[in-house]
Design a protein around this nucleic acid. Sequence first.
RNA 1: UGGGAUGUCGUCUAAUGGCAGGACACGAGAUUUUGGAUCUCGUUAUGGUGGUUCGAAUCCACCCGUCCCAGCCA
Length: 717
Amino acid sequence: MRDAGNSKDDPRDTGKDTAPGTPSPTDFIRAIINEHMKTGKYEGRVNTRFPPEPNGYLHIGHAKSICLNFGVAADYNGICNLRFDDTNPSKEDQEYIDSIIEDVHWLGFDWDDRMYFASDYFEKLYEFAEQLIRKGTAYVCDLSAEETRAYRGTLTEPGKESPYRNRSVEENLDLFRRMRAGEFPDGARVLRARIDMASPNLNMRDPIIYRILRSTHHRTGDDWCLYPMYDYAHPVSDSLERITHSICTLEFEDHRPLYDWFLEQLDIYRSQQIEFARLNLSYTMMSKRRLLELVQLGIVSGWDDPRMPTIAGLRRRGYTPEAIRKFCDRIGIAKNDSMVDMDLLEHHIREDLNERSPRVMAVLRPLMVTIENYPEGKTDEFEIPFHPGNPGMGSRKVPFTRTLYIEQDDFQENPQDKFFRLAPGREVRLRGAYFITCTGVGKDVKTGEITSLKCTYDPATRGGDSPDGRKVKGTLHWVSAAHAIPAEVRLYDRLFSVENIGAEAERTGKDYKDFLNPASLVIVTGSMVEPSLKGASPEDRYQFERQGYFCLDSKDSTGHALVFNRTVTLRDSWAKIEKASVSPGKAPGGKARDKKPQAAEKAAPEKLPEIAIDDFARLDLRVGVVREAGLVEGSDKLVHLRVDVGEGRLRQIFAGIRAMYPDPAKLIGKKVVVVANLKPRAMKFGTSEGMILAGGHADSWSICTFEGDPEPGDKVS
RNA sequence: UGGGAUGUCGUCUAAUGGCAGGACACGAGAUUUUGGAUCUCGUUAUGGUGGUUCGAAUCCACCCGUCCCAGCCA
């Protein structure tokens, strides 16, 4: 079932989704290649390469580069090599090589027999280095790391030449050979290119070519105690592979003169480096160093944690390679620093999964329903199609009995405005089964919590349609209690609660980890899924009707303990209505994405950043009349208020004002200022639907009140 | 403040001297046995100031903003 169906034809598709030889609309890189095709610069040849360093798992940013490199090659009937840039054994590992191979393949790309390693070229790289020495354009330098830094100068001042810069060719050769032979300790000497210590480009100030580093290499073992630097190894590797277009990210722009310098000095094949802007995605980050840290600190379960932006994480989360490829295609290639909206990635996975996922019913948080007029012991079976728009996907039988589960959220005892679902006396449809009407509510005598529902069904509505043409506004998913399979469901959400983690960290002086989304994973146990899911295999993808796309977890799910991961929610216009007219600005998006309650700012008032008048104007301040007020059990700070803000219903507000109002009953009847468009906040004790304003000193303050005229709901200005 | 890049709807990206287009997001409506999907419609942009030109997002000048570079990392 998984991976069934094809993606729709889209002229923008590249790579595997497009026949070779039909270039996509020209991004600037393809424009350059088109020009080369015209002028014959590379004899019509295109050979790119994807050059990861095996020091971490691949992420969605790498996917952009992979799609670009393999896509460009495919567009021009060229080839793309996979090459591991493994010149720093102290950070690299075989595990990463294996994962990279798996991930690139999974994305749908292949390199035939062209899997290379920079370490394959160590001997040649060494010989070329001797050649540079013989030419007099490289020398052995004995400066320490600190001295080298001091000699380099600064951004605005030129560097100083190393005292070792003018050693003879013979001495340099001798020293370099002895470096290779292991005669000197780590860091004692380096080989440097002899270029220009006064260059405004720091990369040209006699850059280091080789350093002594005793570290066992994952491929060459202890053969070498000398490892080449990226700036040297990369152009030479490209050249040896006769790469035509060496595509890399923007930060290497400054390195291009050096790249060209090596190829020219060595007089070898002239590959051309072209730089494009790396991918940044909102609400996540691509830094391998930080991603590694999340893994090492146990903040996530591993590189393949479904919250990680890694290919492995996305795969485990339920993403498809097609969706990722299409996303990469859609974001385009340019040189502007940019931050792509996570919504766009989610759009593509929804689009793909919408087409290919079978629909099933799963009740995440069950509420028991007894159909009182349905015979005990009877079982009905409904044949329900797997896909409403694609009969070809077939159908399954779903059992129906007197005792069912529906979603807790699908019932409200006192339904709020625009709530279409079940409520006392109200009739709704059970998907594919019958209309039912709620006739009773069972509650826990102590807590008042709703524990079960009594309903009746209309036998004439079998299949979900009424012969008399009567309509219902809501359709609910359900499972038969006797047949349902228990499951654990992991609700994943974005890893961070701010769009631009780096910028936010810089602005506030906090660590990026301070912006982790506390609700990035919500584990729901005791969910009930329909029996057809019994045979699900790891990574099988489904739509749980009305909730989202889910896949069976590839690691933790077993035959008798099913674990599902939520890939992405369905678009949810009900969630929008629920939070409508609240949260100013852009909410972190989607369902159940409440921000962590904001801690009170302790900073002195003059230190708070200024806001524009427009920001202030976004506060909807209203007059509210306190109708009910009481203490909150289990909290020594909060007071529970029910406030009339002229909406025809009372708002529940939890306010931290108990210190000044130990007897909240005195507040009843007071006119207060309510921030009416604050996003409702889920608290331990319930949802708080606003704030009331207060003012004063640290231990002497009061809430703002009005006397006299204003009516509940009046605007405060 | 040296050097290298880069500024087009809220976001990403086209237009290469000739109608500022697309996608996402957002909004309105239709439809619906998923508050899904689908369909229709809509709002929103060339950083600024001058100049060249019949005509400028595009060419020129100046200004402003943003990003990258001082690893023996890649």
